[in-house]
């Protein structure tokens, strides 16, 4: 079994932290893993992404990037950023994305258009087998008082739906109470919440 995952968002949202947690849990659950981060925009509100490939067949050669159409789970902490990985989405893909759009400063400055959350959902649905949109950023602020927990909400939703329950259990056993509450809230939110 090979599972191809991507977590993406913008600098400051916690993409690298979410990915580190997921990788630690995957190793603890006995998977072999590979992948790579794009951290060029970390701390600078630029594009950040983590590609995580898991397998329980350690002898299977796995590249650090994902073949076209073969993504299993894409979690986008900002509505549009996952679309930079659109070509790896296909019928087997599940996309979990936040409703929140952060318009890049280059578009703001030049008064140029940028897709809104509805346009992003549509673009994901044109490619992926299943798309779930969640107001994770808003929920994290309103329910937990911390915007940064939006990532945990989306992780909870994504891993539950992708059937990676053993990884979820390792994550839940290693995070603080606020994060665990956000993770569990995400898992509950996703149920029946298809866009």
């Amino acid at each position: 079994m090979i599972r191809n995952l991507v977590i993406t968002g913008i600098g400051g949202q916690g993409v690298v932290s979410c990915a580190a947690l997921l990788r630690w849990a995957a190793l603890a659950a006995g998977y072999t893993l590979t992948g790579s981060d794009n951290r060029g925009g970390a701390q600078r509100l630029g594009h950040v992404a983590a590609v995580i490939r898991l397998t329980d067949e350690p002898d299977t050669p796995l590249a650090p990037d994902i073949p076209d159409l073969c993504c299993d789970l894409l979690i986008s902490l900002e509505a549009s950023e996952g679309l930079r990985y659109a070509s790896i989405l296909g019928p087997r893909s599940l996309v979990i994305h936040d409703s929140r759009i952060v318009v890049p400063t280059n578009q703001r400055r030049n008064r140029l258009p940028y897709p809104d959350a509805d346009a992003c959902t549509t673009a994901y649905r044109e490619r992926a087998g299943r798309v779930i949109r969640i107001d994770a950023d808003r929920s994290a602020r309103e329910r937990f008082g911390k915007a940064v927990l939006g990532g945990m909400i989306l992780m909870g939703a994504g891993l539950g739906h992708a059937g990676l329950l053993n990884i979820s259990e390792y994550i839940l056993s290693s995070i603080d109470n606020d994060s665990a509450a956000a993770f569990a809230f995400g898992r509950g939110l996703a149920t029946g919440a298809d866009a």
Partner: peptide, 18 residues
């Protein structure tokens, strides 16, 4: 060659000051 996915044209996101 294997089937290709469908990329999405999205404006770039420049890094900015914190």
């Amino acid at each position: 060659a294997p089937e290709r996915g469908s990329p999405c044209e999205l404006p770039e996101r420049e890094g900015t000051f914190c």
